[in-house]
Amino acid sequence: MSDTYTITPEIEAFIEECKGKEFSKSYLIAVLHKIQAKYGFLPNNLMEEVAIRMEIPTSKVYGVATFYHMFTLVPEGKHIVNICLGTACYVKGAEQVLNSLKNSLKIDLNQTTEDGLFTLKATRCIGTCGLAPVVMVDEKVYSNVTPDDVPVIIAKYKNK
């Protein structure tokens, strides 16, 4: 499993670049971002690898990774649930829909359900304001979503 996630040459070059700078350790967050951008989450073996390469104790790297909401420590779910929190959607009740999503999935934003099926994310406006509020599951767009629609939508993906 851990072989799947490696420090790519590109990430390696970035780490080396950071190490050459003043206050090199303050670039930890930037390095973690690169890894998350590549794999969608922060695999433990790479956090340890970063710790060794940047000479930052592993516990500290883990502390930083768990502190910031923008990092996620589990691989993304099979389905990505994206809710638009752009202005139009927001005005039309996206927040209630988001709460309903959180309740149904029992996770927070940027988290993945324990069964690995869903990851909940928020996006900015996706340009379909006429359909607000909008929820996207993978590539499919659901429009005019109400909090009550949420369990129905989720159920469709449960057995897929």
């Binding site: 433990n44 956090m47 592993t58 516990s59 883990y62 502390g63």
Partner: peptide, 20 residues
Amino acid sequence: VTCLSQAHRGFKTVVMPAFD
């Protein structure tokens, strides 16, 4: 040794070793 760090945040903050 730096075995320990605060992980997570707010009410969920816990002092723990790396990767819990």
